[in-house]
Design a protein around this nucleic acid. Structure first.
Lengths: 340, 340
DNA sequence: TTGAAAGCGCTACCAG
DNA sequence: CTGGTAGCGCTTTCAA
């Protein structure tokens, strides 16, 4: 494989000039640049990451810590990070993380030493750990947080307006004509749980709908728990919701499942909406109407901020969360209620 | 961060000796080794991958090409590869691959140039592409194939006995007392489809059960298609299967879904079994009885073979598939039929 | 069994 | 705007 000397020789310049072109340094005449680039092209030149990293001390990898692989949310974020890295010419170095183990800091340290990355992306629930933040600061690691509960000093925080999204999707149901709307929440203690619930409540309030406390139940983000919630909510044939908003897609799938087993057709007899837009939303049938989190945009933003930090954004991260645009995905799990 | 000179100085040896210890080279006295290791420990020394790679030309990364992120199968394999790499002290470099694009060879070349890996793992469907094999051979890349349809010269092939597994899980149903067993197949053209079907048929034959052609239907490995198959199979209340073996877990989930909507309880009125043991198998309720593919063992084996190649297994790969042990996961989606 | 020294491919300092 | 040259941290020949 060709190296920088080959390119320089072919272009009739010094290796330093080739290096400048490679790094988009200023002060290279356009004509020289073109010559160099042509030469690189002709030789199918690819710079050696190892050499660049060794010499510059800067790594072309961005680290991410991932836990539960069966979580659709993490899987989706993982894929988005992969995509974003690839687009930015970086590599993603994944550290498998045991969230249930005690030693979070130790696990982080091991990963940092082994991988030598200097940029990290943290996703929930790790992104809210102050111990982890402190360790990264100590080691001079820059980090981006995706969907943290609150911004963190010296870190880039990226998220979306979850409450507004929950409001919107509930309003979608209301505008279709639903007034009996249930909600299955996430686990207590999880920020998203509160935000999504608040959005749901605000939508009801704004529409003058009296909330029914029996129709708000805790599903812990799990299929099984949500199934039980749905059974309870739908048990009373006289008085049951015509629509259910589940705080994530796995739970929405569970609601569909339960409805079916009670002889209810989705969406004819019951509308169901979810949140996140992960794999299961389009695996099952009917596909779920849900809130699509801007996973790709979030990962892109995180990487761009991390990577452009010294030049473009020369300021240290401000202490706020960069809110990205979510999207309502209208699919077929929700429809107007049947009025008799 | 400490470097090899620091370690050498502290241990009172030359850097060459430290290097020998690092690489488990022979010809280092035990006492010297201990001294060096102690010194490494004390300084919290981590060798620089960049420097090692630059000098030796050998990379600590193993490449993998991944396509459809919503495929539970690929997601599971991805995670297994991550785990195996981490255990072996390697890094996994993922290339996002567009299986639906034409230019497979071009995509591979790009990845290879950019990443500079010299070891690759290929998973279905890429692992069966002869174009890809040829390109890797040309570039001197060693590669391991997971679940290829047939072994490939100069490559390590790893898989499991799919037909036997399909036989086993069908027999599991039969031993519970089922005699009316349906099967939903994968897409035609996919090796696993034929193997799993053959295992199913062999089990029926061995048990003297007359196969019912209406009860074998094509689900293409997709939830939606399988749902339609299940509706057809279960439509006839007089004459319908008491158990269905779906050729993957997503389709088994679809069968559960359909059964529910027809007022059938799983497993009381219908037993359902799947294949693969991916995330959805334990997300839904009841959890699926299924065949657990040895994902972790397959990834481990692939990496071990790739990495130990020069020394341990000095022979080039023999042209056979290393068959690993699968496991029947007995969960609650299958039970004995109710006899009246 | 150990050590001295060369050099992998690149970036960065300092000249010109 | 461009070039010479030192050196990142390690592995590897070659000697001892």
């Amino acid at each position: 494989m060709a190296n920088i000397f080959d390119v320089a020789k072919k272009a009739g310049v010094s290796i330093k000039t080739v290096s400048r072109v490679l790094n988009n340094a200023p002060n290279v005449r356009q004509a020289t640049q073109d010559k160099v680039r042509a030469s690189m092209m002709a030789l199918d030149y690819q710079p050696s990451n190892a050499a660049r990293e060794l010499r510059s001390g800067r790594s072309k990898s961005i680290g991410i810590l991932l836990g539960d692989p069966s979580s659709g949310f993490q899987a989706r974020l993982h894929h988005a990070a992969l995509q974003a890295c690839s687009d930015a010419g970086f590599f993603l170095t994944v550290g498998l993380f045991d969230e249930s183990a005690d030693d979070w800091a130790g696990q982080l340290d091991d990963f940092l030493s082994r991988s030598r990355v200097e940029n990290m992306i943290l996703v929930p629930p790790l992104c809210d750990s102050e111990v982890l933040h402190a360790h990264m600061r100590d080691r001079g690691i820059s980090f981006g947080l995706i969907s943290p509960s609150r911004p963190v000093p010296d870190a880039y925080s990226i998220g979306m307006d979850e409450q507004q999204a929950a409001f919107d999707i509930t309003m979608h149901l209301i505008r279709m004509g639903h007034r009996q709307i249930g909600h299955i929440t996430g686990p207590t203690g999880h920020v998203a749980t509160g935000l999504r619930l608040a959005g749901y409540q605000a939508a009801l309030a704004e529409s003058g709908i009296q909330p029914n406390p029996d129709w708000v139940r805790p599903g812990k983000f799990h299929f099984r728990d949500a199934q039980i919630c749905a059974e309870r909510m739908l048990a009373n044939r006289e008085e049951r919701p015509t629509a259910i908003f589940a705080a994530n897609d796995e739970m929405a799938a569970a609601v569909c499942f339960t409805a079916n087993s009670l002889g209810l057709d989705v969406p004819r007899d019951l509308s169901v909406v979810g949140f996140d837009d992960v794999a299961i939303a389009t695996t099952i049938w009917p596909p779920l109407t849900t809130v699509a989190q801007p996973f790709n945009a979030m990962a892109d933003a995180a990487i761009r901020l991390l990577v452009n930090r010294p030049s473009e954004t020369r300021s240290p991260p401000d202490s706020s969360i960069l809110q990205l645009e979510y999207q309502l995905k209208i699919r077929s799990s929700a429809a107007p209620p049947i009025h008799q």
